[in-house]
């Protein structure tokens, strides 16, 4: 009201009415601007959403989402510790997990004839191992929580040979130049199911070539005679009935990553 009193002449309308008009104008001006900006922002958001959904898919998800899954993996590798151990539980808490997933288990299993086929890094000759040869290596037992990507989990006691112990005895991941393979590929004997692992996960002290579950030899539906166990990863990575173990230079194909899931599936 002070500005009103400084006018040379009294205004034509009473001061209160003039102020009302000025207020009305200000309210309209600011509201219009704010709602316009808000509307444009909402449209921009919708446009961004449509753009993203229109991007070419990379392994089952729009490219930008695949890129962000990879970026998340890099952030986790930088900020978190790949050597962190998964919690272990008392053996008494162990239960039989659900037998999800039978891709790669269709063929009849002949345990006596089964061999683990190992393709060493850099074109080394293929070597085959019987179950007895693997069981002759140091045995490691642990009780950890198996986590399915569906969201359920079960505490299970696993036993087998740590992949690191296997590689100490048979250094098939390393070249004479001491160069180590960056990736590991695992496949079922019929090649129907396949997973890829980075070497840090493969060398994790809780990554097992596992032949026992809850004190008994693995059952066929749980991956007999040999499966991968690594509590660093979801169950989708813990391949049952390993046929081939290969140490490779390029990131290997992965059954579920090709169907829209995170290639790393790290926990």
């Amino acid at each position: 009201m002070q500005s009103e009193s400084s006018l040379p002449q009294p205004p034509a309308t009473p001061p209160a009415a003039a102020a009302d008009v000025a207020l009305e104008r200000e309210v309209t001006r600011r509201s219009r601007r704010a709602f316009l900006v808000g509307g444009l922002a909402a449209l921009a958001g919708l446009g961004g959403w449509r753009w993203l959904l229109g991007q070419p898919e990379v392994m089952g998800v729009p490219g930008p989402l695949r890129a962000s899954l990879e970026a998340n993996a890099r952030v986790a590798a930088t900020l978190l510790s790949p050597t962190q151990l998964a919690p272990e539980f008392p053996r008494s808490q162990a239960r039989t997990p659900r037998a999800n997933g039978s891709v790669g288990l269709d063929q009849p299993l002949d345990t006596a004839a089964w061999r683990l086929r190992v393709e060493g890094f850099g074109g080394q000759p293929v070597r085959e191992f019987s179950l007895a040869e693997l069981q002759a290596l140091p045995r490691t037992e642990m009780t950890t929580e198996l986590k399915c990507i569906e969201g359920w989990s079960t505490v299970v006691t696993w036993a087998g040979v740590r992949l690191t112990d296997f590689l100490v005895r048979y250094p098939l991941a390393t070249l004479p130049s001491a160069e180590t393979a960056p990736y590991v590929s695992l496949r079922t004997p019929d090649d129907a199911y396949y997973v890829g692992l980075d070497m840090a996960s493969a060398l994790h002290p809780q990554t097992l070539l596992c032949y026992e579950m809850n004190g008994r030899p693995l059952l066929p539906e749980h991956g007999a005679p040999l499966r991968l166990i690594t509590p660093r990863k979801y169950g989708i990575k813990q391949l049952k009935r390993i046929g081939t173990l290969a140490f490779v230079a390029e990131r290997p194909a992965d059954y579920w990553a090709a169907r829209g899931y995170d290639w790393h599936a790290s926990l």
Binding site: P64, R66, S68, L69, N72, D262
Partner: peptide
């Protein structure tokens, strides 16, 4: 898979 990829971005 779709849910996870959106959730994690």
């Amino acid at each position: 898979a779709k849910g996870m990829s959106w959730h994690f971005v």
